[in-house]
Design a protein around this nucleic acid. Structure first.
Lengths: 183, 183
DNA sequence: CTAGTGTCTGGACACATGTCCGGAAACTTG
DNA sequence: CAAGTTTCCGGACATGTGTCCAGACACTAG
C-alpha cells in the first residue's frame, strides 16, 4: 500500500495513454457507463488489457483522467472582459460543456469521480482545485459570490448527471443562477 | 428486461428489509463504501445473501433506499414560519444533515445515487422530486430563487461527498448561499 | 396436528474485475 | 549490428458479484 512513483511518461507511454483515453470516450459513448470495461477500452485502443491496467487501476480512474484532460485543455480565463457577470457566465458555460455534449460521457465521469476509487482521489482534488480557481478568477478577487457560484456549478452537474433535467438546459440554468448571484 | 412487479411487502418481509437497511448503515460506517458488500450486510442483518438479493439488486440499490427512507422520515415543511429565509435555511439544513452526520454514509449514498445502477433509477427520480418539492415549499410559491437553491443544495452535497470541504461546514455554506440568494 | 402457503437458506453457478508473470517485441545505445 | 533496456503481450489466477434452485423453516387456516 505505498504511494505510486510518479515517473514521467516516455513518448511511447504517453501515446499509449492517449490512445486509451480516446478509446474510453468512444466506448462509454457506445456502451454507456454500466457496460463499460477496461478490457473493452483496451481492445478498442489496440492495446492488451494488462497494459491498460499498468496505467489505470479501474474504469473510474480512466474516466476521471478523461475529465481531467479536458479540463486542462480549456483556454485560460479571459480577464480582459470587464463585466464580472459575463466572465462568470462564460467560464461556467465552458465548464458545463466539458462533457455534457455527450450524455453518457457525463454520466460516466460523474459516477467515476463519485465512486470513491482510491486511485481517483488525487485526480479529484486536482480537478476541484482547478475548477475553484477558474471560477474565482472569473468572479474577481475577493468576490464573496465565488463560493456560491461553485455550489451552483456542481449542483448543475448533478442535476444533469442524475437525469433531473436535460443536458441542454444545464448551461442555461447556470446562467440564470449567475444572474441571481453575481452583483 | 421487464419492469419489476411492485408487490406490497408482508409484515415479515418489511421487517427483513428494515433489518437490511439498518445493517447497511452499520456496515458502510465501519467498512466504508469501497469495502462494502451486500453479502456482508446480509450477514450483519442475520440474513442469507440470497434473501438480501431478492430485495436489493446491488449495494447501490441498498444505499439509495437508505437515503430515501431518511428523506421520507423528515417532518413536513413548517409553513407557519413567516420569513422565507428562515424557512429555506431550516429545510436546507435538514436535508444536509440527512446523511452528513456520518461521512462514510454520505459518501456511500452519493456514490450509490450516481452509480447509474438501473435499479436505482426510479428511486433517484423520487428523491429528486421530494427534494425539489421541499425546497419549493420553503421558498414559497413562485419564488424564482427555488431553482438556484436546489442547485446550491446539490452543490453542497457534492463538495462534501468529494472531500472538497469538511462535512461540518456544509450546512454553513448552504446558509450563506441562501442569504445571498433569497430576497 | 396437518396441510398449505409464503419466506428464507446454503451452496453452486456464470461472469466480471484486477493482479501477476514469463517472454516477445520495440526501442536505445555503443 | 549486438547488447541492454523499456514496454507490451497473452494468459492464468484469485477474488468478488449477482443469479438460481431445491429444500428447510415459519406462519396460517382448517
Amino acid at each position: 500500500m505505498t504511494e505510486p512513483t510518479r515517473r514521467r511518461l516516455s513518448a511511447r507511454q504517453a501515446d499509449t495513454v492517449r490512445r486509451l483515453t480516446e478509446a474510453a470516450v468512444r466506448e462509454v459513448r457506445q456502451s454507456g457507463y454500466q457496460h463499460f470495461s477496461v478490457r473493452d477500452v483496451a481492445r478498442s485502443a489496440g492495446v492488451a488489457a494488462a497494459t491498460a491496467y499498468t496505467y489505470f487501476a479501474s474504469k473510474d480512474h480512466l474516466l476521471a483522467e478523461v475529465f481531467w484532460r479536458r479540463l486542462r485543455a480549456l483556454p485560460p480565463v479571459d480577464t480582459s472582459e470587464a463585466s464580472a457577470r459575463v466572465r462568470v457566465t462564460t467560464v461556467l458555460r465552458e465548464l458545463a460543456l466539458l462533457v455534457s455534449d455527450e450524455p453518457e460521457l457525463a454520466v460516466g465521469c460523474t459516477a467515476a469521480l463519485f465512486g470513491g476509487e482510491p486511485d481517483v482521489r488525487q485526480l479529484r482534488l486536482d480537478i476541484g482545485k482547478e475548477i475553484r480557481e477558474r471560477i474565482a478568477a472569473a468572479a474577481g478577487p475577493g468576490n464573496p459570490a465565488a463560493g456560491v457560484l461553485e455550489l451552483a456549478y456542481y449542483g448543475a452537474m448533478v442535476q444533469a448527471g442524475l437525469g433531473y433535467t436535460s443536458y441542454g438546459r444545464t448551461a442555461d440554468r447556470l446562467a440564470e443562477a449567475a444572474g441571481l448571484i453575481v452583483r
